[in-house]
């Protein structure tokens, strides 16, 4: 498995996959995609990096502990329900804000998107944590 070609190409591929996972995450609002699938792609990127460069390298690259990322994701997903409290709608209702970008365009920020980003963090964190633990045990 640990050939020169693989070790050389894996970091670049990892970066590409993480980028793709962010694309899938943001695309997911209106089209197929979303936090769960995006998170899976990012987690498999981490797996690839782990196979090529070892567990320690993944931990360094992630900077935060994967479990911490999962916790942050749960917090973010739960927090995406809080604006509903202010707007007097039921928990987790979709709320949209239009943020002006200055050039006449608007950026649609919404609570479903925040929730999805939370899901992304949970999936990346949890699956990476499981994977790293299993890889370390061997």
């Amino acid at each position: 498995m640990n050939t020169v070609i693989f070790r050389t190409i894996a970091p670049a591929l990892t970066a590409l996959m993480v980028l793709f996972s962010l694309f899938v995450l943001l695309r997911g609002h209106n089209e197929p995609g979303g936090g769960f699938i995006g998170g899976l792609i990012a987690a498999s990127a981490m797996a690839l990096y782990g196979i090529s460069s070892g567990v320690q390298a993944v931990r360094r690259a992630l900077y935060f502990h994967p479990i911490t990322m999962a916790g942050f994701g749960v917090l973010l997903a739960a927090a995406s329900g809080i604006p509903s409290y202010i707007n007097q709608v039921p928990f987790l209702s979709g709320i949209w804000w239009k943020l002006p970008l200055g050039n006449g365009q608007y950026f649609d920020l919404s609570t479903p998107m925040i929730f999805d980003i939370g899901v992304w963090f949970v999936v990346v964190g949890a699956i990476t944590a499981i994977m790293l633990t299993l890889e370390e045990a061997d």
């Binding site: 502990h65 916790g71 749960v74």
Partner: peptide, 10 residues
């Protein structure tokens, strides 16, 4: 929410 918080402060 607190479980998520305590997970982050592990």
């Amino acid at each position: 929410v607190f479980a998520a918080g305590s997970l982050m402060l592990r």
